[in-house]
Amino acid sequence: MRSVYPFGKLGQLLLVLYLGSLLFSWPVGALFGARLDDYAGASLFLQRLEGQPFDPLFLAEFLPNAAPLKLVSPLLPPLMVGYFLFHVFFAGGAMYSLAERRGPFWASFWQGFMKFGSRFLLLNLIFLSLAAVTVLLIVSLFHLVQKMAPEPAGDMAPLYIALLQGAVIFTGVGLLQSMHYVIRARWVLQPRPLWQMLRVPLQGNARFLLLAAVKYLVITLLGFGLAALVIRLAFSLTVHGVLLLVLLQLAVLCTVAGRIWLYAEFVKDGRRQLRAEEERMKAVPPAANVPVAGGGGATESGTDAVVSATGGAAVGGTPAAADDSPVESPGRENRPEGKT
């Protein structure tokens, strides 16, 4: 079985996400560089830069005039949306293939990409609105408190308040995100209708959620922190192009790896939860309509309709209707084998 994954599943996913990330940012950088190259004689101006510490004059001079930047700016919104969608769909493929234990890696990745990508997008839109409302609430709350409170003493006070607000927003959103990821992980393990899935985080392990939120925050901050570091280096040293590029790739790899590790953690936890439920099911005599194969349920498309029709009261889901499915239900695979 393992031979199907030559670099290991995580390694392959890492490669996909990394290449995908490059695909989105590299053309812009290349375009900028190429345009800069023939942009109205900027080359000589640039040559002066070589061997010198970062020259702020360049920034002052170039940014307002930079045709390459103007060229890039209309590309930005579609790129951002495209990259967002790529991540959501990638998460579908990644989580599904992490949950799936049989069959070729690429097949399961692609299957997850196609099937769960759209579901994740729907889920994401719900959580995005939740996140927006949360941020709005936090900001208004801070606004209200600030209005009622006396003048802040000292000029660090507004800064501290802003930092505190940022931290609260960040934690709140991080918690929401970890709930969102819990649902994702459970969804690929045990597909059920969306409205049933939304209850999953409430039944889950609060400690895990909190810990996951922290991990999510750390990974996100790591990404921004690395960015700040590299930009700082680039601005203060004479950074050669190659060195900068290496640093850049390292930073991208780190954040990408962090994300995939997070996905794996969530899938692992999803399995644990299912197992726990299964144990509980074993202890209690099964209800008439609950299949004996505990935990695992539906697999393929089409079964969801059946699920919603029969109602979601049963913990174990609906009869597994897909014996002819090319890929076995990941849920069925969740036997305590100790390997993931």
Partner: peptide, 13 residues
């Protein structure tokens, strides 16, 4: 130019 394209790519990223 490489330096700057690297930087731009980074900012994009």
């Amino acid at each position: 130019v490489d330096t700057w394209q690297g930087l731009v790519q980074f900012v994009m990223q």
